Simulated assay, not measured.
Amino acid sequence: MARRKITNSQIVCITLLWGVLCYILLAYSKTINFDIIFTLVASAIIVFVPIYKNVKRRNE
């Protein structure tokens, strides 16, 4: 499967969108419990691991 290179502007947009979604999740949740923390950590892993791999491969 061909891999697509992510540009810096795409990385910034993805990061900002992830941040906005995290803010919405935290702003509208009544309490911060394990489910909220787990959701934030899982989403961070899903978003930032592919970005890290892409940047790492680009610098090689």
Rank of each mutant, 00 (worst) to 15 (best):
M1V: 08
A2C: 03
K5V: 01
I6S: 02
I6V: 15
N8C: 05
N8D: 14
S9C: 02
Q10G: 02
C13K: 14
I14T: 14
I14G: 01
I14K: 09
I14Y: 07
I14C: 04
L16R: 11
L17A: 13
L17G: 08
W18E: 09
W18I: 01
V20G: 10
V20D: 10
L21S: 12
L21F: 09
C22D: 09
C22K: 04
C22L: 07
Y23L: 15
I24M: 12
I24P: 01
L25D: 06
Y28F: 15
Y28E: 13
Y28R: 14
T31G: 03
T31F: 12
T31V: 14
T31L: 09
I32R: 06
F34M: 05
F34N: 07
F34G: 00
D35N: 07
I36F: 10
I37R: 06
T39A: 15
V41G: 01
V41F: 09
V41M: 07
A42C: 11
A42L: 14
A44C: 05
I45C: 12
I45S: 09
V47D: 03
V49S: 05
V49L: 14
P50N: 02
P50M: 00
I51D: 00
I51G: 01
I51M: 00
I51Q: 00
V55N: 00
K56G: 01
R57F: 04
E60F: 08
E60A: 06
